[in-house]
Amino acid sequence: MNRIHGRKSYIALPILFSVLTALILYFTVWPTVAPYYSLFSILLTSEEQEEYNGVNLMEQISAGENLANRESISVSEISLPREGDQYGNLTIEGTSVDAPVFYGDGEKQLNQGVGTYAFGYLPGQGGTILMGAHTNTWFSDLGSAKIGSIIKLETNYGVYEYKIVDAQVKDHQDRTAYDFSRTDENIILYTCYPFGTIGFTTQRYFVYGEYVSGPVWVYE
């Protein structure tokens, strides 16, 4: 072997070359790539580590537990639903509406039951709860709901009742149909209108209910 290029050089020089190349590339390329990487991270990443398929929180209620008689509930006691979870069941007096209630109102939830608008409120939270379902399945009989009838919402943390005070047909883009600035608990149920229609429609049937009973959230 070469006298100057000794045996050690055959190991040291390739390692030195590769480390130097890697370092130069890192320090020259990274400042250019970093802003794009951050942008991608913000726009593409979510808190969810894996795709979440939702659970049925109603199954977690023990058989003897009486949720109906409570007047208030500490937030720390509540298993808050994540998007996709079934956290309740909805029935309306005088109608055949009897549907599972999910948190979130994406296609997946609407295929399975009644969806809760996630940027609205939850029962007991003290605000406007907005729930929707398809007119040809879970809410096909929503039109039979009479003013004064009771909407019963059983959740994994309590049973809530709301009295129907109004029902209206409005355009799907009419923002006066709901008011999330209200500070009193109320519920809005909606579905496509006319009932049994074929194809998409621009009208929605809204049913408005005022709070009657159910445990109010207490923040401690």
Partner: peptide, 13 residues
């Protein structure tokens, strides 16, 4: 598939 199934239900198709 999920989206179209939901649309089909909503549209009575």
């Amino acid at each position: 598939q999920e989206t179209f199934t939901s649309h089909a239900t909503a549209a009575n198709v």
